[in-house]
Every structure is written in structure tokens, then in C-alpha cells.
């Protein structure tokens, strides 16, 4: 009986370790897998050439990813500009001013927003944002557009970022000790002054991390952006023009990539690039959070 329990314990313990180690090695395995597939493209092009060149002609073996990287950066930055102020204000309201009732309502709201599949945001974007841009917003600026644009991608992405960013910001503000705020209030500061000078200052690393992680999240978002962004290579900085972010490029071309030489390697390189960028951002800002949580 005792022996049986020992054996079971040993077996299950081993399985636990194997599972955990596998999960932790996952990014490495994915990275190596993608690198092996992407290797042929490195034989003919240098890394800087791939990233900075704008010459995109897969049939001629020219793979310059810069327009796609720029497209990704553009929608991501737009999404950040739209979502950051809203999330910051909402997080302040929900942690400092709001009634218990509102906070109780907002939690499931955040969960559902975070849980809605990407494709649903895409559908909503096509139904609402795209016609809104082509019908109202663009004429207002004297522009002519189909609505499928960088701007549409930015707005849809901004909304997808909200639950993620808001949740992290609320966590950050909750860790500010009540005492420091009360000290500020007792010195005659208004509520807002205490928030501005004490709460926000105290949680600055947390805010920066929340923003950084949301940027990384937005950078890798695929389906929803791809549905509204127009998928044409970025030609100008006009937000009413269509763009072509990196994830959309991968998703759109997986069908034909096997028929053009080197194309699959180039696209796997794009996936590897995404992985590395996002993993580095994540590791950096998570480290910042871990460090400040300890202090």
C-alpha cells in the first residue's frame, strides 16, 4: 500500500515537472521552430535588409517588411492614443470615486469585453466604424475613402485594448496605500490633487507597464484589424488610407505562400519577428511590474 502510494506520487510528480517545463519552454520551442522554417530567407537577405527595406515583391524574391512593420506600428499607436486616456480616467474613477455598485458591474463588463472573440470586434467595426468613417468623418476632413483604413483599424484595436489596459491600471491603482492618499487629503489637497500628485506618481511604473503591455497586445492582434484596415501596402501617413499590418500579412497569405519560393520562409520570419518583439516587450514590462510590486 505504502509502495503504491510512493510510486503514484513519483509518477505524478514527474508528470507535473514535465508539464511545467514544457510550458515554460514553449516560447523557445516556437522560436526555434519558426527560425528553422525562416532560415532560407536569411541566406539571401540580411536581417536589417528584411526589416528596413520597403521593396516588397514576393514573386521576384524581394522581401522588405518595413511597410508592414510601419503599418502595424501606425495602427498600434493610434489605438494607444484613443484608448490610453479613456482607460486612465476610467481606472481613476473606478478605484477612487466610484460606488461599490458600479465597480461590481464593471468587472463582468471587462470580462465580457476581454472574452469577445476578435472576429466579433471585426464584424462590429465593419458595421459601425467603417461606414462612420467613410460617411461622416472623412467628408468632414475633405477626404475620400472607403472607410477601410488605418483609422478604422486603430479605433477597433483601441476598443479591444480597453479591457486589458483598464484591468491592469485598476490593479495598479489598488496597490497605492490608502495612507499616502489620506496624508495628502489631510494637508488640504482636493481629491483630484491627491490623485494627480500622489496616486499617479506612486503608480507611475505600473502605468507605464500597463501601457507597454497593451501596446504589445495591440501589435499582435490579427483578425479584427485585418477585417477593417484595408490590407493594402501603406503608401502615405494619411490615417484615412488603408494599411497592411504584419499579422494581417501572415494571415492573408498562408494559402499561397507554398506556391512561391521563399515566400513561406519570409512569412515565418514575419511570425518570428512578431514573437520576438512581443516577447521582449512583455518580459521587460512584466519585470518592471514584478520589481515595483516587491518594493
Amino acid at each position: 500500500m505504502y509502495l503504491r502510494r510512493r510510486i503514484i506520487d513519483r509518477l505524478s510528480g514527474t508528470w507535473m515537472v514535465i508539464s511545467l517545463v514544457t510550458i515554460l519552454l514553449l516560447p523557445l520551442i516556437i522560436g526555434v521552430g519558426l527560425y528553422i522554417k525562416a532560415a532560407p530567407v536569411f541566406e539571401q537577405h540580411t536581417l536589417t535588409e528584411l526589416i528596413t527595406s520597403s521593396n516588397w515583391a514576393p514573386t521576384k524574391g524581394k522581401f522588405g517588411f518595413w511597410p508592414f512593420i510601419a503599418g502595424s506600428l501606425y495602427v498600434t499607436v493610434l489605438a494607444f492614443i484613443f484608448s490610453a486616456p479613456v482607460c486612465l480616467l476610467a481606472a481613476i474613477h473606478l478605484t477612487q470615486y466610484a460606488s461599490k455598485k458600479l465597480v461590481r458591474i464593471i468587472h463582468p463588463v471587462i470580462d465580457i469585453l476581454a472574452g469577445l472573440p476578435s472576429v466579433i470586434y471585426g464584424v462590429w467595426g465593419i458595421l459601425i466604424i467603417v461606414p462612420f468613417i467613410s460617411g461622416y468623418l472623412a467628408p468632414l476632413f475633405g477626404q475620400n475613402t472607403t472607410g477601410y483604413s488605418i483609422l478604422a483599424g486603430g479605433i477597433v484595436l483601441a476598443i479591444m485594448c480597453i479591457p486589458y489596459m483598464l484591468n491592469m491600471l485598476m490593479e495598479v491603482f489598488k496597490t497605492v496605500p490608502m495612507g499616502t492618499r489620506e496624508a495628502s487629503l489631510s494637508l488640504g489637497a482636493t481629491y483630484w490633487e491627491s490623485i494627480k500628485h500622489v496616486v499617479i506618481r506612486h503608480s507611475r511604473p505600473g502605468i507605464v507597464s500597463a501601457f507597454g503591455l497593451s501596446l504589445a497586445k495591440a501589435f499582435g492582434e490579427t483578425i479584427a484589424v485585418m477585417m477593417v484596415v484595408g490590407n493594402r501596402v501603406l503608401s502615405s501617413l494619411n490615417p484615412f488610407d488603408p494599411g497592411y499590418p504584419l499579422p494581417a500579412l501572415i494571415a492573408n497569405n498562408y494559402g499561397e505562400m507554398l506556391s512561391i519560393p521563399m515566400y513561406d520562409a519570409a512569412l515565418m520570419f514575419a511570425a518570428l519577428l512578431l514573437l520576438v518583439i512581443i516577447l521582449v516587450i512583455n518580459l521587460f514590462f512584466r519585470y518592471l511590474i514584478h520589481k515595483t510590486q516587491k518594493a
Binding site: P27, L34, N282
Partner: peptide, 29 residues
């Protein structure tokens, strides 16, 4: 524990399209 959680959190951030691309290479392999 902290180190493990740190890596798990970072893993959470990897976008689905990267998993998709990896799954595809694995499948071909």
C-alpha cells in the same frame, strides 16, 4: 514561484497568429 509566474504572464502575451504559424510549421514537419 515568482520566476515561473513571470514567464507564464509573458507567455500569455504571445499573439494567436504566432501560435498559428508555429502550428503550421509543426504540421508540415
Amino acid at each position: 514561484q515568482n520566476v515561473v509566474r513571470y514567464f507564464l504572464d509573458a507567455l500569455w502575451g504571445i499573439p494567436p497568429i504566432v501560435y498559428g504559424a508555429f502550428g503550421f510549421t509543426l504540421m508540415l514537419y
